[in-house]
């Protein structure tokens, strides 16, 4: 086993007859923001709980910084920042007291924990509310406290389970601002799960799609979006307007916006390759401003991949 922040090999976990994880292979490198998406019950949270040593897998190997989280978590814990789907706060305490308590668990001195708590509450935008009890906080504010808590010990690996769940735009921005900075400046690795595909697409260097306990697609965000969309769509912006009849004669099956002079071609639907399209453009001496492949959203890729997996099963 190497000392990668996260390395899972063929991990399996059952709950009775239910197979929660069916051979998960996954690794996260230092400084990488790794996203994991999948439908409810697909195994995202179970994967996280396995990583935190809260579930023992029946098969496969799990390594966090080269140690087994089930048996050696005391070595791993101080290097980790964890934000679970439930913020898990002590409602009777104030934000500062809660962070001081966790600072104590991490072995920080009382003064050190207090100073760090103050810094982090400023960083997550909770200045002025630090003396209010946590039970009076909104869901978004509680998520911010949980985020501050997971940054308390200056972690080398962040594990965030649904951090965007029920948060407002401001909290989302706080998360978006903090995480990439930690990855690039301090080499913090991040594993984040979410149903918010847009945020995952924006933040993550690599993404895995998990379905029925298996990773059905995984790769760098741009590559994943290109290779798993299930469709190749070319968008051509012509510099000279052509009548729509001519456009449909040359490129049967394409969508043409005559007013803008934009052709949109689904290559599979049109039964053409990229080369054939380019050849036709050159043969017809059509001048154009741009030709580009239409980028599919993560949402499209997600549906395409999970649907494919469902059909193959």
């Amino acid at each position: 086993m190497t000392s990668l922040p996260i390395e899972l090999r063929q991990v399996e976990k059952h709950f009775g007859a239910t197979r929660a994880l069916a051979g998960i292979d996954l690794h996260v490198k230092p400084g990488e923001v790794f996203g994991m998406i999948g439908p409810n019950g697909s195994g995202k949270t179970t994967t996280i709980r396995v990583l935190l040593g809260l579930h023992r897998p029946e098969a496969g190997s799990v390594s966090v910084f080269g140690s087994d989280p089930w048996s050696e978590f005391s070595h791993i814990g101080p290097r980790l920042g964890v934000m679970l789907d439930d913020p898990g706060l002590h409602g009777a305490l104030t934000a500062t007291e809660h962070l001081e308590f966790f600072g104590g668990l991490l072995g920080l001195s009382r003064r050190g924990a207090r100073r760090r708590a103050r810094e982090l509450l400023v960083a997550v935008g909770l200045t002025g509310r630090e003396r209010s009890r946590l039970k009076t906080y909104s869901k978004g504010m509680q998520q911010r406290v949980a985020l501050a808590r997971c940054l308390l010990g200056e972690p080398q690996l962040l594990v965030l389970d649904e951090p965007f769940d029920g948060v407002d735009a401001e909290t989302r921005r706080v998360i978006q601002r903090l995480l990439p900075g930690l990855a690039t400046e301090r080499g913090v690795a991040t594993l984040v799960t979410s149903h918010n595909h847009h945020e995952i697409e924006r933040m993550c260097d690599r993404i895995a799609i998990i379905h029925q306990g298996r990773i059905v697609a995984c790769g760098e965000t741009a590559v994943l979006l290109r290779s798993n969309s299930g469709r190749d769509v070319l968008v051509i912006e012509l510099s000279e307007r052509v009548p729509s009849t001519e456009a449909s004669n040359v490129f049967p099956g394409c969508l043409y916006d005559e007013a803008k002079g934009v052709l949109r071609m689904d290559l599979q639907a049109c039964g053409m390759t990229r080369e054939q399209v380019l050849k036709k453009i050159l043969d017809r001496r059509l001048s154009f401003n741009r030709i580009e492949e239409e980028r599919q959203s993560l949402e499209d890729v997600y549906f395409s991949v999970t649907e494919r997996d469902r059909t193959s099963c």
Partner: peptide, 17 residues
């Protein structure tokens, strides 16, 4: 209130808590 999981994820031994 699901506080134990974040507490234990600091690496603290349950015996200490």
């Amino acid at each position: 209130k699901h506080v134990l999981a974040p507490m234990f994820s600091t690496g603290v031994n349950p015996g200490v808590v």
